[in-house]
Amino acid sequence: MTATTVEDLDRAPARAARTAPAPIPFSRLMTVELVKMFNTRAGFWLIMSMAGTALIATASVILFAPDSAMTYDNFGAAIGVPMTLLLPVMAILSVTSEWSQRSGLTTFTLVPHRGRVIRAKMVVAIAIGAVSIGVALAIGALGNIVGSAIAGVDTVWDISANQITMLVLANVLNLLIGFMLGVLIRNSPGAIVGFVVYSFVLPTLSMVLGNFQQWWEDLRPWLDFNWAQGELYDGQLTSTQWAQLGTAGLIWLVVPLAVGLVMVMRSEVK
């Protein structure tokens, strides 16, 4: 109850009418989401560990592999293994941190269209994934040249352009699985555990089931997403295999992602 109160009550609004600001373009949302992936401690170390493990994997092949194994294929495989875990984790955290870290309160008030934000995150995650694989392949190529020079053997380039495409596709699919689990579970530890179960436990269960149940063994190529994905690493896919990948992907990736998106739209952010 200050002395100025009465006078303030009668004061007319002095602010001039303003023009409505321009809408937020999608490109800006992508930039924001890209920045957000790198400017947290977790994001920074995740990217660093991708580069780090790629270097360690390359160095290990050079140091420990026999000269005959000094091929691009082997370098690529060694670098690819940590990527199959790190890329999905990056995709998971980009989504789940909005809930686990509660930064979504700000994100979704500044952009009250959750679908747009999630789409921007997905595009950025895929782009980072593709670039990371590109960088990893480049490190592998360098390792291949250096390694074969040290061993004094011919440099072997035994990965075709087609194989590279399939490799990128396989990694992007893997990353999208992480993304889907992030959207569906919306909790960082939960989604990471979910990913481990999805990628390592379910395939084993599927295999065991297939050993005992003939009907599952017959249907497995169509229903086991991990199996269908595995074909990608071998390079060439027949049209049947593409169809199997599509069917399994629909069941294990597209549908759960759609369910997750509906939940994201309806849920409370608090």
Partner: peptide, 17 residues
């Protein structure tokens, strides 16, 4: 707010958005 982000980065994200 994201615990792993600095105060300045938090504001920069908002300003950028």
């Amino acid at each position: 707010q994201h615990a792993g982000r600095t105060g300045r980065e938090t504001l920069r994200v908002a300003a950028r958005t």
